[in-house]
Design a protein around this nucleic acid. Structure first.
Lengths: 162, 162
DNA sequence: TATTGTTATACTCTATAACTATA
DNA sequence: TATAGTTATAGAGTATAACAATA
């Protein structure tokens, strides 16, 4: 089965033979692979009544270690979104009792987002399931191929940001 | 400069030493690379008063070749979105005079989306600029590395869909 | 009956602006 | 003055459902 990206390249070759569209072979596959992976991961999140954004907040709190408390501004930097977007994500999680907000003892302006017992249980249950899904996706690659892919993606990332 | 993904892996290692989080090294970088690339491409699209979705529709029409006419249902399959989402994208493009809708002579139920003169000019101008941006991003990789990366991404894509 | 296409509607996610409070 | 955080608001994008028309 010829894949989608190949068909697109063939179309460009007949329509614009002088245009070097070879970058699309990589970037087209990068985009599609990322979409497919996100979609697959979303299914695992949904099994735990989570979406990608909520999982991200809870996982960030969990991996920060005890006492599982982070300032919203940290979460915003981490996820590269506005502090307003963070506040709205937190509202949803707080309504569900998965996180709570406390005053920051070191900064009167600040807040600390805390993982509740219920939030802790949920993310502890979802995490191994998530890792297993990721494992299933990359298991088709050997360890060397995985390392190679990570390096190439890192370089693409840096090139895109420069 | 240690990168973000490495920091996340280190945190997991201290917090959950028994969990094999090695898949995150690949999938984390895949997601972040895709986001960075999309963001970079968006800047080029914006210079031509386009967004990714609009560019996609116009480019699909252009590479289909003369007479530059496609049924909406084809566009939906291509972009993997609902026909309703296509209709709404087309409304925007039609308002701007970049595409027009005609009756499909072969199917009374159907419509053909046609690239207008104005739409043709716009996409012909944006395309080389877009390809140049993609070229700038992947130029850090040798031809062999590009081919290798494409193969690895293809396999990740297939694994994620299975 | 199934397919094509559109609109109305609602939902989600986000950023901007305005505001409060503290550093 | 700058920073932290929240809410109100508006905008973009999407899918679902309802509908009309043709196969």
């Amino acid at each position: 089965m010829a894949n989608h990206v190949d068909r697109i390249l063939e179309q460009w070759h007949s329509e614009k033979p002088d245009l070097d569209v070879s970058p699309m072979a990589v970037i087209g596959r990068l985009t599609r692979a990322a979409v497919a992976v996100e979609s697959r991961l979303a299914k695992t999140f949904a099994r735990h009544a989570l979406d990608s954004a909520s999982f991200d907040v809870l996982a960030t709190l969990l991996r920060s270690g005890a006492p599982y408390r982070i300032a919203p501004v940290e979460l915003a930097r981490d996820a590269m979104i506005s502090t307003s977007a963070v506040a709205q994500r937190l509202n949803k999680l707080e309504t569900r009792g998965l996180v709570s907000r406390e005053a920051n003892p070191n900064d009167g302006r600040g807040t600390l987002v805390a993982l509740t017992e219920s939030g802790r249980e949920l993310i502890e249950a979802a995490l191994p399931d998530h890792v297993e899904t990721e494992h299933a996706i990359i298991a088709t690659l050997s360890v060397e191929e995985q390392a190679n892919l990570a390096v190439l993606l890192q370089r693409i990332h840096e090139a895109a940001c420069s």
